[in-house]
Measured scan of single mutants.
Amino acid sequence: DVEPGKFYKGVVTRIEKYGAFINLNEQVRGLLRPRDMISLRLENLNVGDEIIVQAIDVRPEKREIDFKYIP
């Protein structure tokens, strides 16, 4: 289970104008929005990159997770 405030290693699987989709595993995916990136820009991410993200909002009923990147 993903818990708000905890850090997780994930893989960038898709990049859109509104953010990057990060997979923690095959069943768990969330969104990293540009506003939640500190010292990292969306255009510097590539599909396949491994990054450490912090879960900031977890909505299991909608199967949605918002992430934050903190270097």
Rank of each mutant, 00 (worst) to 15 (best):
D1G: 14
D1P: 13
D1E: 13
V2E: 02
V2F: 10
V2D: 02
V2I: 15
E3H: 13
E3N: 09
P4V: 15
P4A: 15
G5S: 06
K6L: 11
F7W: 11
F7N: 07
Y8W: 02
Y8V: 03
K9W: 14
K9D: 05
V11D: 02
V11E: 05
V12K: 00
T13D: 06
R14H: 10
R14D: 04
I15M: 07
I15G: 00
E16C: 09
E16N: 09
E16Y: 12
E16K: 10
K17V: 14
K17Q: 11
Y18G: 05
G19Q: 03
A20Q: 00
A20N: 00
A20I: 05
F21D: 02
F21M: 09
F21P: 00
I22E: 01
I22R: 00
I22D: 00
N23H: 14
L24F: 03
L24E: 00
E26D: 13
E26M: 14
Q27S: 14
Q27E: 13
V28L: 15
R29W: 15
R29P: 03
R29N: 08
G30S: 01
G30P: 01
G30F: 03
L31A: 02
L31W: 07
L31C: 04
L32W: 04
L32R: 01
R33H: 05
R33M: 04
P34Y: 08
P34F: 07
R35W: 10
R35A: 12
D36F: 07
D36S: 07
D36H: 13
I38P: 07
L40Y: 06
L40N: 05
L40E: 05
L40W: 05
R41M: 12
R41E: 11
R41G: 10
L42A: 03
L42K: 04
L42Y: 05
L42E: 02
L42P: 04
E43N: 11
E43M: 09
N44L: 10
N44M: 14
L45C: 02
L45I: 11
L45W: 02
N46L: 14
N46A: 15
N46S: 15
N46I: 11
N46F: 15
V47G: 02
D49Q: 11
E50Q: 12
I51A: 00
I51L: 13
I51Y: 02
V53S: 00
A55S: 04
I56L: 14
I56M: 14
D57I: 11
D57T: 12
R59M: 04
P60M: 10
P60Y: 11
P60H: 13
P60C: 07
E61G: 13
K62R: 14
R63A: 13
E64K: 08
I65L: 09
I65R: 02
D66H: 08
D66S: 11
D66R: 14
F67Q: 02
F67P: 01
F67L: 10
K68L: 09
K68T: 08
Y69Q: 04
Y69S: 03
I70V: 14
P71N: 08
P71W: 06
P71S: 10
